[in-house]
Amino acid sequence: MTTTAPRRASVPRARIRDRGQVDALVLAALADAPLRQEEVADTLRRRVGDTLDVPYSRIVPTLHRLARNRLVVRSSRDPRRYRLTEVGTRSLTARRRAADAFASGLHGLADGGEEGSDSERRAPSRG
């Protein structure tokens, strides 16, 4: 007779495939200090690993693209480390604001839009 190990309660994980979302996550990982590619991956796994799934294969090309777009640069002391530029910091701030606004709007819709009464949400009658 074989037994199976008890299943762990799985946390729903969102697989991130959108380029803009991966860019924002990588920029956020670099917000505190310059990091190497593998450190970016470790930071993402440690901070959001239970809820978001960012494949490591997306991190390296993302860093190269962000460098081409002047949002990150390689550190002069250690060329394997990437750090945010001033433009990258401004971009991250704008992306955070947009994500907050999106989340707020989504929660408002999902919670039933507590503003106004039900009759105000219906289309006006033509008469």
Rank of each mutant, 00 (worst) to 15 (best):
89 T>V: 04
115 E>I: 00
81 R>F: 00
119 S>T: 13
122 R>N: 08
122 R>F: 02
72 V>Q: 09
21 Q>E: 13
121 R>T: 02
25 L>R: 00
48 V>D: 03
4 T>H: 11
41 A>Q: 11
125 S>A: 12
100 D>E: 13
13 R>E: 10
127 G>E: 02
113 G>P: 03
9 A>W: 02
95 R>S: 01
39 E>R: 05
39 E>V: 01
34 P>H: 01
76 S>W: 09
121 R>E: 02
76 S>N: 10
82 Y>R: 13
31 A>T: 11
45 R>K: 14
106 L>C: 07
15 R>H: 10
20 G>T: 04
38 E>D: 15
44 L>M: 11
54 V>C: 06
21 Q>V: 06
28 A>W: 09
33 A>R: 15
14 A>I: 02
102 F>N: 12
73 V>P: 02
50 D>G: 13
50 D>E: 15
116 G>A: 10
83 R>G: 05
49 G>L: 09
66 L>N: 07
10 S>D: 08
101 A>M: 10
23 D>V: 00
33 A>D: 14
114 E>M: 02
55 P>R: 15
98 A>M: 03
93 T>F: 08
53 D>G: 06
8 R>C: 09
63 L>P: 02
18 D>Y: 02
29 A>C: 01
82 Y>V: 00
96 R>L: 12
67 A>C: 12
87 V>D: 15
6 P>E: 14
107 H>P: 01
92 L>N: 13
99 A>T: 06
126 R>E: 11
91 S>I: 01
59 I>A: 12
88 G>L: 03
126 R>C: 04
80 R>L: 08
117 S>K: 06
96 R>M: 10
102 F>R: 15
78 D>I: 07
90 R>M: 10
71 L>S: 09
72 V>S: 04
91 S>P: 06
125 S>P: 00
125 S>H: 00
50 D>N: 14
78 D>P: 02
11 V>L: 12
16 I>D: 03
82 Y>C: 05
109 L>R: 15
14 A>P: 00
1 M>F: 04
3 T>R: 09
13 R>Y: 05
70 R>M: 06
90 R>Y: 12
69 N>Q: 15
91 S>K: 14
79 P>N: 09
46 R>D: 07
39 E>K: 01
93 T>R: 15
91 S>R: 15
86 E>N: 08
66 L>I: 09
12 P>Q: 13
9 A>V: 14
38 E>K: 12
92 L>I: 07
79 P>S: 10
69 N>K: 12
126 R>M: 09
98 A>V: 05
107 H>T: 11
116 G>K: 03
106 L>Y: 11
42 D>W: 00
